[in-house]
């Protein structure tokens, strides 16, 4: 199991994402799983950058990565309560004229992971994603 601690998080999106993807738990997965995890983690890290902390707050983010018969990544931040799973799914049957530019990231995250859970506990946003091996 890897535990990564990032502080500050502002302006560190690339470094944070790279550190997660370079963990032994992730690099030992097959390409298809790595790609799905990259998509999921990019969405989550960018959400933390955008919504979790106020502009003057550098913030922190803990990432716990566990590999068993599946890979589980738990993100914990001390920012404002934000449940990304409450976003409405886009209507994928709409034409390009009607489609608006948003709501896609969490939709992709849900489709690419086997399980996504959110909780707010002890003043922390806790988002957990799970992917079984295919």
């Amino acid at each position: 199991m890897s535990t990564l601690h990032f502080q500050p998080v502002k302006g560190q999106a690339r470094e944070i994402l790279d550190a997660i993807l370079q963990s032994p738990e992730v690099t030992s997965c097959n390409m298809k799983t790595i790609l799905a995890l990259r998509l999921a983690c990019e969405e989550i890290v960018m959400n933390v950058m955008t919504y979790a902390y106020l502009p003057h707050d550098d913030g922190w983010l803990d990432v716990h990565i566990l590999k068993t018969d599946r890979i589980t990544i738990r993100f914990e931040d001390g920012g404002l309560p934000f449940n990304p799973l409450e976003q409405k799914n886009p209507d994928t049957g709409m034409s390009w004229k009607e489609r608006c530019i948003g709501g896609l990231g969490i939709f992709i995250l849900r489709r690419k992971m086997d399980d996504v859970r959110y909780a707010y506990e002890n003043n922390r946003n806790i988002l957990t994603i799970e992917k079984a091996f295919t």
């Binding site: 969405e43 390009w96 489609r99 896609l104 990231g105 992709i108």
Partner: peptide, 14 residues
């Protein structure tokens, strides 16, 4: 590799 942000670029360009 294309993420949701990348898809937005394509849709916006369209």
């Amino acid at each position: 590799y294309i993420s949701s942000t990348g898809l937005r670029v394509l849709l916006c360009s369209k």
